[in-house]
Design a protein around this nucleic acid. Sequence first.
RNA 1: UGGGGUAUAGUGUAACGGUAGCACAACUGACUCUGGAUCAGUUUGUCUAGGUUCGAAUCCUAGUACCCCAGCCA
Length: 562
Amino acid sequence: MTNDTPSLHFIHQIIEDDNRSGKHGGRVSTRFPPEPNGYLHIGHAKSICLNFGTALKYAGQCNLRFDDTNPCKEEQEYVDSIQEDVRWLGFDWGEGLYFASDYFDQLYEWAVQLIKKGKAYVCDLTADEMRDTRGTLTKPGKNSPYRDRSVEENLDLFERMKAGEFPDGARTLRAKIDMASPNFNLRDPVMYRILRAHHHRTGDKWCIYATYDWAHGQSDSIERITHSICTLEFENHRPLYDWYIQELGIYAPQQIEFARLNLTYTVMSKRKLLELVRDKHVAGWDDPRMPTISGFRRRGYTPEAIRAFCERVGVSKYSGVIDMAWLEDALREELNKRAPRALAVLRPLKVVIENYPEGKSEELDAVNNPEDPGAGTRKLPFSRELYIERDDFREDPPKQFFRLAPGREVRLRWAYFIKCTSVVKDSKTGEVTELRCTYDPATKGGNAPDGRKVKGTIHWVSIPHALEAEVRLYDHLFNQPYPEDVPEGKSFLDNLNPKSLEVVRGFLEPNLKNAAPGSRYQFERLGYFCADSKDSQTGKPVFNRSVTLADTWAKIEKKEKK
RNA sequence: UGGGGUAUAGUGUAACGGUAGCACAACUGACUCUGGAUCAGUUUGUCUAGGUUCGAAUCCUAGUACCCCAGCCA
C-alpha cells in the first residue's frame, strides 16, 4: 500500500491514540530510568533514543531518573558516566533529573499506608525459607506463617526495622497479595529488605531499602509519567505495579514494553560487561571494543550514527538480534560524508623510485573529501623513497588483482604513475623487502597526458616525511555471532576473539601530526580512524580504527579461495 | 509443566480485510584518481493445518517454535 505518512511503531501509535482520546490531556511524559551500576551500552542507547525521542516528537518531557534502590551495586562513578553518555548522545533532560532515592521517605509512608490497609506485612522468613515456600511454576506457594500478623504488630515491627533493631536480612516487608498466583510477582513480593549499606546519595540514613518493584512504579507515578516505556522482561511485573498504584490510589502511568536490543558478536548484559572489565579482558568500560556508549565514543562512533542506527532497528515486541554490520554501516554512511581523507600505510613495503632525483621532494595537491567539495585540498610531500601497503603488491598476481606487480603500472593517489621494475628480497627468508620502480614525470597529479589508463590506484607515504604512529586495529570482541550460545561447561569468554586488537606502527602523511584527540579521518582504502581521546598527545597521535571500508577485493579473493 | 509474550526474505521492519513494501546483507552490471562512494538491476518472505470471505499476513479454530518469570537484583 502506498502511503505518504511514515508508519508509526506500536508505541507511537498508542501515544497518538491517547492524544486523540485525550487520555492524558495530550501530555506526553517519559523517562529513562537506568540503575547506576554500570556504564550505559548500545542497548540503553535504543531506550534513550526511544524515550527522549518520543518526548521530542510529541513536545513532551523526558526525565533522567536513576533507579538507585540497591546500594550494594551502585556508585557515583556510574551516575556521572550515565549523564555524560546521555548528553553525548544529544539528549537533554532539562530540569528532570531525579533519583528513586529522592522518594525514599514517600515510599516509606506509602508502605505504612499499605500495612494499615492490611495489604502488607512483616515476614520473618529467611531468604531460603521464602524460596521454599514460593512454590514452583506449576505448584502454588504456601502462605507465610507471619502473613496474618495484626496491623499494630506489623506497624511496630516495620518501624523497628527502619530503626535498625534487627540484623540484615532478618525480616522483610511483603505485600499481601496471592501466594497461589500463576504470576510469581504476585506471590507476596518483598517490598523492603534490611540492608546496612552506604548509599551513594542517602548515606547511612536508611538500613531498609525498597526493592526495585516497590519503587519503580510509584517513582513513575510521582513524576506523572504518561507512558512508562520499558523492556519485555517487565511485562510480568506490570500487574504488580498496577496493584500497588491501585491500592495506593495514586496517579497511574501506563507501562508499555518493547524488545531490548541484541547485537551479534557482542554481549549486552551488564553482569557480563562488568566481568569483562573486572577480569581485564578489556582495558576498561570505555575500551573501544566494548559495546558501551563510551566504548563506541572512543572507537570513533558519532552520536549521529548511533541515533541513525537506533532509528533503523525500529521498535517492536519481537526479540531478535541485529547484525553488527548495521551499526558499522550507519557509521560508514555518516563518516563518508564528513570525514576528511588521509593517506596512511599500516603494513609498509619500501618503494624506491629509481628515476626520481635523490634528495628531491615536492608537494602535491590532494582533495580532502571527494564527497564534500567544501572540504578543500591539502599538500602531500613526495620523494624518491616511499612506503606502500604490502597488500598492494603481489609478485605473482592472481587474476583480477590490479594493483602493483613486477612490470605493472599503477597510480599513486594524487601523485604519479609508477611501474615496478624489480623486486629486492631478503636472501635468507625470500621475503620481499623493497621494490624498485620508475615513475612517469608526465603523470604528475595522477593523469597521463597520452590518455593511457591504469587500473589500480594505491595509497602511499613519503618515507622522509612520514609520521610514525601507533595505530590500533580493532575487530569484533567475540569471534562468534552469538557468543552466549555455548555448550554445557563452556562460557561466553571462550568465544573472545584473540585478534580483537592488533597494535601496529603505521606511517601517516605528516598533516596528521596535529590531529586533535577525538578527530576522525578516513585513511583511504583502509577505513575510518579516530585519534584516541585518551592516549593521543599533541604532535604524537594514536589512532583507533573505528571501522574498515567495504572491501570488494577481499570478497573476490575469499571467493577465489573456496 | 503454570503464567506472560512473540512469529512477515539471511537480518530487522512496514501493511491495520483489497497488488506483500523498505533498509541492511547477498548477487549482476555501470561509473570511478579510494576495489571506497554513487547509480541501475536481480535473488530470497507471511510458522503449520483447517475455517470465514468475492478476497486473509490481517478475522476465527487447533497446533508448532522461540523468548521471559520460581533474587531480600534491576
